[in-house]
Lab assay of single mutants.
Amino acid sequence: YDEVAAQGEVVRKLKAEKSPKAKINEAVECLLSLKAQYKEKTGKEYIPGQPP
């Protein structure tokens, strides 16, 4: 859960800094992968601010 939240912060920071699109896309792919792992382990969708 904490990893997903941390990666979400990374994506937000990159977007706020107007980073190159390729770098943002890479961070988003990582975030989506973490969300998929979270769902696989818990059986639930990741919802920000609602730990399992």
Rank of each mutant, 00 (worst) to 15 (best):
L31N: 08
K15L: 09
E17A: 14
R12F: 02
Y1R: 02
R12W: 03
K18R: 09
V4A: 00
L32Q: 12
T42G: 04
P51A: 08
K15T: 04
K13P: 02
N25Y: 06
A22P: 10
G49W: 06
S33T: 13
L34F: 03
A22G: 11
L32F: 10
K44Q: 00
G43A: 06
D2Y: 13
G43T: 05
E40A: 11
P52D: 06
K13V: 06
P20E: 13
T42N: 14
V4G: 00
A6E: 13
L14W: 01
S33M: 11
Q37I: 10
P52W: 07
P48R: 07
A16H: 11
D2N: 15
K21W: 04
A36N: 11
L32Y: 11
P52R: 11
P48W: 04
P20V: 11
V4K: 00
K39A: 09
A22C: 10
Y1K: 01
I47F: 09
Y1P: 00
K35H: 03
P52T: 15
I47E: 14
Y38S: 03
I47S: 12
Y38W: 02
C30Y: 12
V4W: 00
E29K: 14
E40L: 07
V10Q: 06
E26F: 03
E29Y: 06
K21H: 11
E9M: 06
S19T: 01
R12G: 09
K13Y: 02
A22F: 11
Y38E: 02
K21L: 10
Y38G: 04
K41M: 09
L32H: 15
C30D: 10
A36G: 04
N25D: 14
V11P: 03
K35S: 05
N25W: 03
T42F: 14
G43Q: 04
K21G: 12
G49P: 12
V4D: 01
A5E: 13
P20R: 06
V4F: 02
R12T: 05
E40C: 07
Q37F: 02
E29Q: 13
C30P: 04
E9K: 07
K39P: 01
E3C: 12
L31G: 07
E26T: 06
E3Y: 05
E17P: 01
I47W: 01
L14P: 00
Y38M: 03
E40D: 07
N25A: 11
A27M: 02
N25L: 08
K39R: 10
A22T: 10
A27N: 03
K13I: 03
T42I: 03
K18Q: 08
G49I: 09
I24P: 03
K35Q: 06
K21E: 12
K39E: 12
E45Y: 04
